[in-house]
């Protein structure tokens, strides 16, 4: 009660000349109805507590999706495309190879041809995709950019590694094939920037900074 004397006087003056500033006593209106029972907990906030502005900054949203986000999709498409092509190829080979057979035997043989050829080519393409994605992720992490150089280097390294156990010459050939394919891909995608590519109509999932 005693310490309220000063502010009581100030508040009396404040009612005659209100400034509506935070130190204006007339702004100090109690939000408690009586004692402990409050009107609302949300009224118990002084709006002058948080003086600094609060913004939602678009941090982390400025970057395009990186290679890691596409890695699993790439590998999965590799596996599925490899399985589909291998399956069709196996069916074709099987039909040719089982000309003399009939009935159950031929059907089982055909199923075996399709599943074995499909599985092996799916695995091969999947492993290539895993290598390519791994190299691509590593390069874009190590160089801290995501550009055509990464694509070319990752594809070349994939070719070299995939054929690395078959001798130096074959490994080099594999690397060359990787380089050629990735160069073709990069050229195709470069047309995307000039608006001549099919990528514009399919959807621009692969965007990079040229």
């Amino acid at each position: 009660m005693e310490k309220a004397e000063g502010s009581s006087l100030k508040s009396l003056l404040g009612f005659y000349s209100p400034s509506y500033a935070p130190d204006d006593p007339s702004m100090n209106v109690s939000v408690y109805s009586s004692g402990i029972s409050k009107l609302s907990p949300y009224l118990n906030v002084d709006p002058y507590i948080n003086q600094e502005p609060e913004y939602i900054l678009p941090e982390g949203a400025n970057r395009q999706r990186g290679r890691f986000e596409f890695a699993f999709g790439t590998i999965g498409s590799g596996v599925m495309v490899g399985g589909a092509f291998g399956g069709i190829n196996g069916l074709y080979t099987g039909i040719k190879a089982t000309q003399g057979m009939t009935g159950n035997v031929r059907r089982t043989q055909l199923i075996n041809y399709v599943s074995k050829t499909g599985a092996s080519s799916a695995n091969a393409l999947g492993v290539i995709a895993v290598m390519y994605s791994g190299f691509g992720c590593f390069l874009s992490w190590y160089r801290d950019t995501d550009d055509d150089t990464n694509t070319l280097a990752a594809a070349t390294a994939t070719g070299l590694l995939y054929k690395s156990s078959a001798g130096l010459k074959r490994s080099a050939i594999g690397g060359g094939i990787g380089l050629a394919l990735s160069a073709a891909y990069c050229l195709w995608r470069r047309g995307d920037k000039e608006g001549r590519s099919i990528v514009n109509y399919v959807g621009s999932r692969h965007t990079s900074s040229y």
């Binding site: 890695a71 699993f72 999709g73 590998i75 999965g76 498409s77 596996v79 999947g126 492993v127 895993v130």
Partner: peptide
């Protein structure tokens, strides 16, 4: 496709 790829990478 994504899950298939993730599983393949994990397995390989």
């Amino acid at each position: 496709v994504d899950d298939c790829g993730g599983a393949f990478a994990m397995g390989a």
